[in-house]
């Protein structure tokens, strides 16, 4: 299976770090299992509501501002990735490259301006 040594090493390192990042806390939690008392009384098992019995099951609120924020985030996420791809070589493309990336950024900024003017950035 053709795979350059460098990529294999990178992938093994990423997986190694992810493995230790999850395994170490899990090991600590597992070790703690014997050290910790465990007496789940009835009251302790209730969700925490400053001591009062639970007022109502967790109802959902619907605010579109949460969605508007998530939407703009995803759009700017995509823009950031494409800018990260083009940033290192921008110097090589001279003024033409500058104009093309400028146009791309202008288009996405237009989206921000649109959301701004539609008053969707406020957190009323």
């Amino acid at each position: 299976m053709l795979m350059s040594q460098r990529d294999a090493g990178d992938l093994i390192f990423i997986l190694g770090f992810a493995l230790v990042g999850v395994a170490a806390p899990a090991a600590l939690l597992f070790i703690g299992r014997w050290l910790r008392p465990s007496s789940p009384g009835k009251v302790k098992m209730e969700p925490y509501e400053c001591g009062l019995p639970q007022a109502s099951p967790p109802r959902r609120l619907f605010r579109i501002r949460y969605y508007a924020f998530a939407l703009l985030f995803v759009i700017f996420d995509v823009e950031t990735v494409l800018l990260f791809a083009s940033a290192p070589v921008l110097k090589r493309f001279g003024a033409a490259g500058l104009w093309s990336v400028g146009a791309f950024v202008a288009l996405v900024t237009l989206a921000l301006v649109y959301a701004w003017r539609m008053h969707l950035l406020e957190w009323e």
């Binding site: 759009i75 823009e79 083009s86 070589v89 237009l110 959301a115």
Partner: peptide, 28 residues
């Protein structure tokens, strides 16, 4: 990858900006 993106694929690069703008307007 950057060279390919700003060189031969420049049209796609600009179109993606347009698609991002259009999807924001549509979603909102």
């Amino acid at each position: 990858l950057g060279n390919a993106l700003l060189g031969p694929q420049l049209v796609g690069f600009e179109l993606i900006g347009l698609i991002l703008l259009a999807s924001v307007i549509a979603a909102l």
